[in-house]
Computed example of a mutant assay.
Amino acid sequence: MTDDLPLLTVDAVTRHYGAHIGCKAVSFALFPGEILAIVGESGSGKTTLLNCLSCRMPVSSGTVSYQMRDGGMRDLATLTEAERRFLMRTDWGFVHQNPADGLRMRVSAGANIGERMMAVGDRHYGRIRQTAEDWLARVEIPGTRIDDRPTAFSGGMRQRLQIARNLVTAPRLVFMDEPTGGLDVSVQARLLDLLRGLVGEMGLSAIVVTHDLAVARLLSHRIMVMKEGHVIEHGLTDRVLDDPQHPYTQLLVASILEV
């Protein structure tokens, strides 16, 4: 692995749904330790792009390449299904907007975290349980809840548990789809502080899809603005939000300021 090469390289990625464009000719590079926010209104193509980048959806054209742990770049389309599943369980994380989509709701909080550890070969029960307790503490869930199922947790606690489940294997790249969506404002603020601290502490790379420009400003180094499947503006987060160039970006920023 090398930090002077991109972790993820995206070249002219396009996704069609019949005659409809999900995303069109998107290109960028993401470097180790970098956080990219993808913003835009509903239907802009940001979630379609995220699903293409994370191998949850095939691309219609273009390539997505990833720097594997041996330092080699691999076109994700050439991975076998087993290689892709292993990458998703270990080197990548995916934080869903609805925590129930990223958790096993019928097993305990500890088992949700332990399952990811077992995916990388850990079989020592005592070590798995201790690590699960440590991670619950890191995401501000009392250790006494380790044997409780997520069905007994609040929405904010479920989202924090989902974050712990994803980060326990020390992934190098985390995809986040509206990670604060549907949460109360006070819960959002607490979760964002937690996410920012963990991402910085672990040196993670992340791609965050959000419609909330405040989330983008707090978490990301760079921002990509999408409209109708196209990237219309891309740059450093503070530059784009403080001095937007495209009329659509100006409209997005102005609408937030008026709230």
Results as ranks from 00 to 15, higher is better:
Thr2Asp: 15
Leu5Ala: 12
Leu5Asp: 06
Pro6Trp: 04
Leu8Phe: 12
His16Pro: 00
Gly18Arg: 04
Ala25Val: 12
Ala29Ile: 00
Leu30Glu: 05
Pro32Ile: 01
Glu41Tyr: 02
Thr48Tyr: 06
Leu49Asn: 08
Leu49Pro: 10
Cys52Trp: 03
Leu53Thr: 11
Arg56Val: 13
Met57Arg: 15
Met57Ile: 09
Pro58Cys: 11
Val64His: 13
Tyr66Thr: 07
Met68Tyr: 11
Arg69Gly: 08
Gly72Lys: 15
Met73Lys: 14
Asp75Gly: 03
Leu76Pro: 09
Glu83Gln: 14
Phe86Gly: 00
Asp91His: 11
Asn98Ala: 08
Ala100Gly: 13
Asp101Glu: 14
Arg104Ser: 14
Arg106Trp: 00
Val107Met: 13
Val107Cys: 10
Ala109Val: 13
Ala111Gly: 00
Ile113Lys: 06
Met118Tyr: 01
Met118Lys: 15
Val120Asn: 02
Val120Arg: 14
Asp122Gln: 12
Asp122Ser: 07
His124Pro: 02
Gly126Gln: 09
Gly126Met: 01
Arg127Gln: 15
Arg127Thr: 14
Ile128Trp: 05
Ile128Met: 09
Thr131Gly: 00
Val139His: 00
Ile141Lys: 07
Pro142Cys: 06
Pro142Lys: 05
Arg145Phe: 15
Arg145Asn: 13
Arg149Val: 10
Ala152Glu: 11
Ala152Val: 09
Ser154Thr: 09
Gly156Asp: 03
Gln159Met: 02
Gln159Pro: 01
Ile163Phe: 07
Val168Thr: 04
Pro171Ala: 01
Val174Gly: 06
Val174Ala: 06
Asp177Ala: 05
Asp177His: 05
Asp177Ser: 03
Thr180Cys: 10
Asp184Ser: 12
Val185Ile: 13
Ser186Arg: 13
Val187Leu: 07
Leu195Asn: 03
Arg196Glu: 13
Val199Ala: 03
Gly200Glu: 09
Gly200Asn: 12
Glu201Tyr: 02
Met202Ala: 11
Val209Asp: 08
Thr210Ile: 04
Thr210Val: 04
Asp212Glu: 15
Leu213Phe: 07
Val215Lys: 01
Arg222Glu: 09
Arg222Tyr: 08
Arg222Phe: 07
Gly229Gln: 07
Ile232Val: 15
Glu233Asn: 10
Gly235Gln: 13
Leu236Tyr: 09
Asp238Tyr: 08
Val240Thr: 05
Asp242His: 08
Asp242Trp: 02
Gln245Val: 12
Gln245Gly: 11
His246Thr: 06
Gln250Gly: 12
Val253Cys: 05
Ala254Leu: 02
Ala254Val: 00
Ile256Cys: 03
Ile256Glu: 11
